[in-house]
Amino acid sequence: MKPRQKRLAIVLGGLAAVGIAATLILNAFQSNLVFFFTPTQVAGGEAPKDRPFRIGGLVKEGSLQRNDITARFIVTDTAREIPVAYKGILPDLFSEGKGVVAQGTLGADGNFTASEVLAKHDENYMPPEAQAAVDKAHEASRTLKQ
């Protein structure tokens, strides 16, 4: 009887593990698969209104202002923009022109108050000299177009 009970316990443990996995999947499908909403989606009313959610996009160039501990910046997806206020430490990779995901609530005035700010980096990896060359090439093509 003892080994059988032990086996039963392990089977139940295995089932519990699969159960946890299934719960996580369902949970993810319900709310978390959409990790963040873009400013366009927020403007379109797709974001939840009664609870905190995340917005994602690029930090608009030249929009970052810091006074004391509050950082203010604009999150843009190049079509729409949302002003964000955040009290706290920004992550290392946070910078203007780069990706960002902020969690918080949207006020009636259209300002987003963030409780957490995460940096979203891209999949490009290269040495600084190569990045400088890329920037120079961009600059050159821009001047050529004008």
Binding site: L24, A28, P91, L93, F94, L118, A119
Partner: peptide, 15 residues
Amino acid sequence: PMWGAWWVWDARLTS
């Protein structure tokens, strides 16, 4: 250090 969080419940990490 990079994102600012040890863990997030996004689709990649959860799966």
